[in-house]
Design a protein around this nucleic acid. Structure first.
Lengths: 202, 202
DNA sequence: TTAGAATATGAGGAAAACCTCGCCTTTTGT
DNA sequence: ACAAAAGGCGAGGTTTTCCTCATATTCTAA
């Protein structure tokens, strides 16, 4: 009587090698399609076509369209967090870590501007992701604050607060120029951001 | 024989006072609905309901959904351009025009953060609007460049380039904090942006 | 080799959004 | 007061997108 809820397959993790690749193909295709068409027009049919798959297969691995995007965002954030963590790991003077950090962030975004715009502007932002984003940012800010405190050449009154702004400057200027002025040379952008932050810290 | 193309009414400008108000009601309702639901979920039906109108009436004044948003964006840009123009009109020392400019921009955005996010992130951006946006920005940058040149206390090597970054800093930091950290006090934000720019210009 | 599990297929159902069109109501000008 | 123009209405046609499910193919392991 209660046929319970088949609703939809629980979308197991793939078990054979074939399907692990299929999952990757879907994610790659989605990244491509979202970058080209934006989120709203990046339909699941289009993604499946780009991945040379049928829609049905796509839904074996993702319960819905948002889930695909969710994984893409998570991936990017994990990657970025890892890169930033590495750059800020050990104590170094400002002249070293600031350019390194800025260049890393700019490069991270310059790789695929179209996708980034979709990922962080057009996409629906479930609270879970917003949380993750804030955490990642807080972690970066904490690392920067530590570097500010460790550098005897700097006399920053409120390292925690200042660090938050440093992170915000790098992140938001990068985002803005990559999105709105893709013709700009990434290296020049990174250089200019460095002077801005340096000026701010003196 | 040729019923030609009624396609749809040419959407004349309203002629009676009643309909001028109707048009306004639609725009106000759209602003509200877009701010609440985002662009994709801000359906024309919802907008009409919010405006206490039927969808049919809505389509008397706007040929489609995008057109409504287009007008909202134009309005905001016109308003912003006017405010900025006024702030930067006559030559003043940095300590005067920079806080004035920053506060004006921050306030402009703090008024209705939700709507702004939709207007400038989620919405489709027809090239026409992007053009307008770049022009407005170029105008602001030119005005700032003039002020940088006029101030004898400043020795900016490349006023034109620097001015573009000044505008970018103000715009993008404002955007970022208003969108991602609505709890932040707008005045504090304005103050911090001023120190950043000031540091950059020394 | 072969049974059964895993994976892939794609036509089409369901839901949602856009927009139209014929008709009714209000306003205007004479 | 009345005809004509302007404005308003809203059920429903059309299109688009998401997602399912019955069936087919491929793989694994005994």
């Amino acid at each position: 009587m209660p046929p319970s809820r088949p609703t939809h397959k629980p979308r197991k993790m793939p078990q054979q090698r074939r399907s692990r690749r299929t999952r990757e193909r879907i994610l790659d295709a989605a990244a491509q399609v979202f970058a080209d068409c934006g989120y709203a027009s990046g339909t699941t049919d289009r993604i499946a076509a780009e991945a040379r798959l049928s829609v049905g297969s796509l839904y074996q691995y993702f319960p819905n369209k948002d889930a695909i995007l969710f994984v893409l965002v998570q991936r990017h954030m994990d990657h970025a967090a890892q890169v930033v963590r590495q750059v800020l790991a050990e104590p170094r003077p400002l002249e070293e870590w600031l350019p390194a950090l800025t260049r890393a962030v700019v490069r991270l975004h310059a790789e695929n501007p179209g996708l980034h715009q979709v990922l962080f502007e057009q996409a629906p932002r479930p609270p879970e992701l917003v949380l993750g984003f804030h955490e990642a940012e807080a972690e970066a800010a904490a690392a920067v604050a530590a570097l500010l405190r460790a550098d005897p050449a700097l006399k920053v009154a409120e390292p925690a607060r200042t660090a938050r702004y440093v992170v915000a400057i790098i992140e938001s200027l990068t985002h803005r120029f990559i999105s709105h002025s893709p013709e700009l040379d990434p290296e020049e952008l990174a250089g200019e951001i460095c002077s801005i932050v340096t000026g701010y810290l003196r």
